[in-house]
Write a protein that binds this DNA or RNA. Sequence first.
DNA 1: CCGTATCCAGCATGATACTG
DNA 2: CAGTATCATGCTGGATACGG
Lengths: 142, 142
Amino acid sequence: MQDGTFSSLGHLQETRRGNAYARDCPTRQLLDLIGDKWSVLILLLLGEEEVRFSRLKQRIDGISQKMLSQTLKSLERDGLVTRHAVATVPVTVSYRITPLGRELLGALQMMIDWAETRMPYVADAQREFDRRLSIADHREAL
Amino acid sequence: MQDGTFSSLGHLQETRRGNAYARDCPTRQLLDLIGDKWSVLILLLLGEEEVRFSRLKQRIDGISQKMLSQTLKSLERDGLVTRHAVATVPVTVSYRITPLGRELLGALQMMIDWAETRMPYVADAQREFDRRLSIADHREAL
DNA sequence: CCGTATCCAGCATGATACTG
DNA sequence: CAGTATCATGCTGGATACGG
């Protein structure tokens, strides 16, 4: 079904560089990494300072130990944070953001700013949409 | 468990404005909207021009009719795109990005640029991480 | 303290078939 | 052409308990 799409894209100029619409474009790959529930929150915290595991768990509202551990390992694998273990008893582990991670955080800043100023408008649009929908549903029920 | 977090954040200065670490911060709300599999790809296409449903389906590699319909309705509900139906037979429907959606696209541009230039480094880091892990696993098996 | 294993519920996505 | 309904499925995230 899509083979034709791919080959026709070989010599295209879709305005943006590269094939931005393939399901495996870099943007989607990135969203697969950070589009989850906790990654960005963790990166934001680590962007300020090195933080210990237990402190992260305290400061991130509602995260489970499992998800914190899992997300940190993921971020470490992606080269966005580093893990530093000190062999005390019990062991002490802290995490730092990498230069690559810090760069990403910078690239996300405009998005974060947009979210903080514009999400209220999105919420308005959603309410309006739902209101119209419920009216339409009501008519339909006649 | 997290109530203390919230109240203590009342008079904080966590570097970034607002409580960026709550699970319902605007940034996470935004990621809930566009962190899915298709939203950004659709927005990018609509950012160039008004596009018909069938054309979107052709151009977005691998999307199902259900997911296209569902994602478009979601974006419409969020106020990021608008739907325009023409009562031909059969009906003709096209979608346009809204000013709010275009603004979001602008805010995403740095992230998109970062993804296109830096995702290779992420891929490198992942390979390196997996390589070391397999070595460790191998030792462990002795 | 930090991390993992297990089990489980809910949701996101997809295949397919059907309708106006 | 555009969209919905149904059903199946894999994955994400959460609860809990255990281990180093």
